[in-house]
Design a protein around this nucleic acid. Sequence first.
DNA 1: TAGTGGTCTAGACCACAAA
DNA 2: TTGTGGTCTAGACCACTAA
Lengths: 246, 246
Amino acid sequence: MHLDHIDRSSKLPLYHQLYEILRDHILRGEWQPGDMIPPESELTERYQVSRTTVRQVLDMLVNENLIYRQQGRGTFVAHPTLDQTLVRIVSFTEDMRQRGFEPGTKVISSDLVSAPADIAQRLEIQPGEELARLKRLRLADGEPMSVEESYLVHRYCPGVLQGDYASHPLRRALESDYGIRLVRAKQVIRALPTPSDLGRMLSMRPAKSALLYIERVSYSQQDVPVEFLRIYYRGDRYALYSELHE
Amino acid sequence: MHLDHIDRSSKLPLYHQLYEILRDHILRGEWQPGDMIPPESELTERYQVSRTTVRQVLDMLVNENLIYRQQGRGTFVAHPTLDQTLVRIVSFTEDMRQRGFEPGTKVISSDLVSAPADIAQRLEIQPGEELARLKRLRLADGEPMSVEESYLVHRYCPGVLQGDYASHPLRRALESDYGIRLVRAKQVIRALPTPSDLGRMLSMRPAKSALLYIERVSYSQQDVPVEFLRIYYRGDRYALYSELHE
DNA sequence: TAGTGGTCTAGACCACAAA
DNA sequence: TTGTGGTCTAGACCACTAA
């Protein structure tokens, strides 16, 4: 069981503590999509904070699309949607499950390389600094879906490449072994023609071949760039979704 | 000058009215990016609402990335960013200006067609119903950037095709002539190989040719689907940006 | 020190949904 | 009618920035 009460002597704001608590309940699946969460009155009572503070926290969760409210009925855990991929950091595994695929991973290679200028610039390090490089083939229902090339600043996570990243998430290793949580990221999305080597790896038919290409830089809690990631998705299997407003 | 006061007898909530007012100031450019907006105390005073209400409105604007706050300094108008394209409905003109290009448009064709099944389904109309179709070539600094194919439910905007949409925005015509505001949209983003006809229109080199393809359904104030849009962006000139969080 | 935004409270009344 | 979320107020004290 996780921490489930508010520490009045903590320096963290009450709303922040309550946010972590409620978010945890949802992300750990203790409250399932569609479930009603306790009414505001009960949260006020249980955590001994004002209704305003409770509502501030619920507003944050609504903004993240983790919950939704219905006047007169209650507040409910939201069902995950595909457009989250463009707003929240979502693991390949989660993403595929939401799309109705069974995810799989094969490690293509892992090695240490020295940082080329373009990657060094985005990771805010010196060119030539040591990077851990991990290439993986990602599968959906056993069929190739994407190729991922991860570059990690090795200084922050020496020895990462020891891990088995076919069956264990890289993010989890970073967190548990090095205390690094990737909390923020910036990405660029492009369409590319398919180079023949990638086409082969992804088992693509040349005629239908284009790649949805993503470059992502991920930042730690301390706002330090830690990972540079290239993802090549099969254009004939993968799409991104988003909702727009005025 | 636009309405700049709050109507206490209106059925609209105070925060909603204030939101429209402040948003207007920003979107009309009366407050420029980087400008400090009036402090909360002054807004409280000027519009005669509580600070809580003022802050509720500012929170909304912060969430839309229209303003940002700095404790101890003030609240400022945000500079537009490229990742807005994935969250807010942005006109081609605005988008290109933000990217540092001078936008241009050529109308390729405009005609009435009967709705094919796939489009009818997304527009929630009967197959065969009349659609206004508008094809345009979009230019950036005089060079082709994208091809857009717009399908409008003609019943909602009879005679739209009379307009000159090389120099006048389609959105404006819908609003002023038919009272239709497209306030919400859903889109899907894919990578496509370049068909030869589009490649020619976009002046693309075959070797570097992939398209970033977007399909968008836009909804009116009444949540009725009005427009189905296909955009084919040159993959070698156009990219999308997004920021992710945990 | 003065002015700004950040956090928090207690309480009121309204609107809507379900029994 | 009861219980839920929606809107709004007045006021307090804190934290940070700049002069």
